[in-house]
Design a protein around this nucleic acid. Structure first.
Lengths: 160, 160
DNA sequence: GCCAGCGTACTCGGATAAGTCATGTCCGAGTGATTCAGG
DNA sequence: CCTGAATCACTCGGACATGACTTATCCGAGTACGCTGGC
């Protein structure tokens, strides 16, 4: 049950996209983080499909956030990359086998599934409570300076 | 990020082992749930390695819980099957690339990692709050009868 | 000096291989119950 | 009838194929910019 490593890249990319006013190409994002350019492109495509970022084609193209960073939760990014399928899927074991519970007695969810889904719900709730904007502010606070502005300036240098 | 399907089997097996007084072989557990006997054996091995169940060899052998069902949390079972590795591993992206944060500024954890780990912690907390004993009682309550006793009786018939 | 058209270079996007892990299976080692002979 | 050991059948345990998914990559489609030529 390991989370895709692409999620970490995607979240970081969203954070640095917080503070830009022009599209940033995937190649620049890859160079900034020193990761595989083509694979990161794949993650950005997923973000675009999910509607979190907007892709701009052409010479000065790239990616831009579609809405305010405070309106994008970490959960949104995770779901965009990992998909919407829940981590636990109940296969209704209780209905199988010689002593299987008859379907008419299965009005309520299987207790095992309930426990798993409750935990998953707690996980989602925690991810939903944090926005990309929060992360950006915390990055700046932790660095003791406006790190995002530095990156934005560097973006300008790369574009030129 | 899908959880192994074996976890569901393992939890159900632990629940039915709640109420037995003699070892139950993996073959019987597989027949009860109508699942692959050999693969379920693998899961039971993992539970034994984790110390949740005790294996008894020989003719009347099988598996028994090692401690009170109320002392075994669902998290214990999940960890036994899935392993202890966290679902999210921070690769310290912030330290890489031309604008990487210098290590001396990385005293505190990366905000992205902090968010992910907080969510994972919430997930673990929810799983830890539910015990195998809880699930057994809920199964009986949902069925409106002592379903576990029925299974125990059936175990006796299988052994004979 | 201004405008239209064209070429170009840069961007994303989906389709395509390789590696890794979960899934599913098999056979050998070990052990407790049974059985059977002897006292 | 009791005791003891040898046998036997049944159990677990780890080593071995298979398939799906994540990871990583490539090439083609599309578009905005910049240049050139004409007005």
């Amino acid at each position: 049950m390991r989370m895709s490593g692409g999620v970490e890249w995607a979240v970081h990319c969203c954070v640095v996209l917080t503070d830009v006013d022009q599209p940033v190409p995937a190649a620049t994002l890859a160079k900034l983080h020193d990761v595989s350019m083509t694979y990161l492109a794949k993650q950005m495509q997923a973000l675009a499909r999910a509607g979190l970022v907007r892709s701009v084609q052409g010479k000065a193209g790239g990616y831009v956030l579609t809405r305010d960073p405070d309106e994008i939760t970490v959960l949104d990014v995770v779901v965009a990359i990992e998909g919407v399928e829940p981590q636990f899927v109940c296969t209704e074991i209780r209905q199988r086998g010689p002593l299987g519970t008859p379907p008419e007695d299965c009005r309520t969810a299987c207790p095992v599934a309930k426990a798993m889904l409750a935990a998953e719900s707690a996980w989602r709730g925690a991810l939903k409570a944090i926005t990309i904007g929060d992360l950006g502010r915390e990055v700046n606070r932790g660095a003791g300076r406006d790190a995002l502005a530095t990156i934005r300036t560097w973006f300008g240098g790369e574009a030129a």
